[in-house]
Amino acid sequence: MKFVLFYHSLISDWNHGNAHFLRGIATELLLRGHRVEIYEPTDGWSLRNLRTERLSDSLMGFFKTYPHLLSRFYQLENFDVGAVLADADVVIVHEWNDPALVKKIGRHRARSNHYLLLFHDTHHRAVTDPESIARYDLEHFDGVLAFGKVLRDIYLDRGWAARVWTWHEAADTHVFRPLPGGPEEGDLVWIGNWGDDERTHELKQYLFDPVETLGLRARVYGVRYPERALQVLSAAGIEYGGWLPNYEVPRIFARFRLTVHIPRRPYRRALPGIPTIRPFEALACGIPLVSAPWDDVENLFTPGRDFLMVHSRREMEEAMAAILHDRKFARTLADQGRTAILRRHTCAHRVDELIGICRELRLSRFAEHRPRKEPAVT
C-alpha cells in the first residue's frame, strides 16, 4: 500500500516529540514493503527554531541515522492535493497541521473514495484548548487515531468523529536500544523540555530537590529553559546540556545510571493513561526508570516491575538511592522494562494495529457498498 502522511515535521524534533513516533512508524512501514511519502510545511516552527539556533548540523545526523526517510516540503497556498493523493491508499493527517490543510484534504476525500483518510491526535489540546480541535473539519475523514483511550472518548463524546481508535505511541527499537557502555558521565540524566510551566512544581519535587539532597551527578537536556530555570538547575548542582537531537538519546542513556519520567500536568490530571513517548524510549534503551505519578488506567506497564513509580519527594530519593546502590537490582529493573517494550510497545506493534484498522475500514466500506440481493419470488 501507499501511505501519504502529513505531519508538522519529520526532520526536526526541536520541541516536537511527535517526530520520534513518525520516524519509527515510517521506518516500519518501509521495512514491510509499503510505500511512504511524508509531507511537512516549508515554514514549520520546529525546523525554523532549529535553524534559528544554528543547530542545522543536527540535520546531517538525522540523515545519517535515517537514510531511508525523506521529507517533502509544501506551501499550502499552491499545494496540489489531487496530484499528491492520486495513487494513495492510506492518508494520515496529524493534528499539528493547519486547519485549512485538513479541510482541503477532507474535501478531496469527499470527491474520491480510493483511499482511507485518518486524523491523528497526539496532544492534550482536546482538553486544554478544545476550541482549536473543534476547528478541524473532519466530516469526510474515515476516523481518528487517538494516543490514549481517554482522548478517544473525548472525540466520541463531543461528536468530533464517529469512529475513533486508541493508538498509543511506542518506541522505535531500531534506534532506541541498549548501546555498549561508553565512559560513565554521571548518575542521572533527564531529557525533556521546560514545558510552559506545565510541570515546574513537579520538576522541583521529583528531580531538582532529590538530586541536590543526594548529591548526584546529574544532567538535563532540553529547550525553552528560561533564565530562572537555568538558575534553579545551577543551584541544585545539575548540568544543563541544551538541546539534544533525539537520535542521540540512546548514546546518552548508555553513559548514565538512571533516568526519570515527570509527566506534564495536563496529562496527569485530564488525560490519564497517556505517558507520552519518552518513557517508551527510555525503557527500550535499557536504562532504569523512576516515574513521578501518573495513572496507568490502560495497564500499559506493570509499575514496580517495569519501572518504579513514586508519589513523593521522599519516595523519589529512596528509589534513586536503591538503583544507584544496588547494581543487580538496577539491571533487573532495566531488563524488565525493556522486555515490556519488546512484548507490547514497539513501532512494529503499532503498525500491526494500523494495518488492522485499515483492514477494518476496508471491510466496513465493502459491506456498505455491497449490492443487496433481491428476495426470491415465490
Rank of each mutant, 00 (worst) to 15 (best):
Y7W: 03
I11G: 00
A26R: 04
E28N: 01
L29R: 01
L30V: 12
V36P: 08
E37P: 03
D43H: 10
G44E: 02
G44S: 13
L47W: 07
L50Q: 02
R51P: 02
M60E: 08
M60A: 07
L69R: 03
D87H: 14
N97G: 00
D98H: 15
P99N: 05
A100Y: 07
K103D: 08
K104S: 04
K104R: 06
I105F: 04
R107L: 14
A110V: 01
R111C: 10
S112R: 14
N113G: 10
L117P: 05
L117Y: 03
R125S: 09
V127R: 14
S132D: 07
I133S: 05
R135Q: 12
G148F: 01
D153M: 11
R158V: 04
R158A: 09
D172Q: 12
T173W: 10
R177G: 01
R177W: 06
P183L: 13
D187Q: 06
W190D: 04
W190T: 03
D197A: 14
H201R: 15
K204D: 12
D209V: 10
L216C: 06
V220E: 06
R224I: 01
R228E: 00
R228Y: 13
L230M: 14
S234G: 08
S234R: 15
A235D: 12
W243C: 04
Y247L: 02
E248S: 12
P250F: 02
P250K: 01
F256A: 10
L258G: 05
T259S: 11
L271E: 01
L271N: 11
P272S: 11
R278F: 06
P279D: 07
L283K: 07
A284P: 10
P293W: 09
W294G: 09
V297N: 08
E298S: 12
M309S: 11
V310K: 01
H311L: 12
A319M: 03
L324T: 09
T332Y: 00
T332G: 00
Q336E: 14
R338A: 00
I341W: 05
R343H: 06
R344I: 10
T346A: 07
G356L: 06
G356F: 02
S364C: 05
R372W: 05
T378L: 10
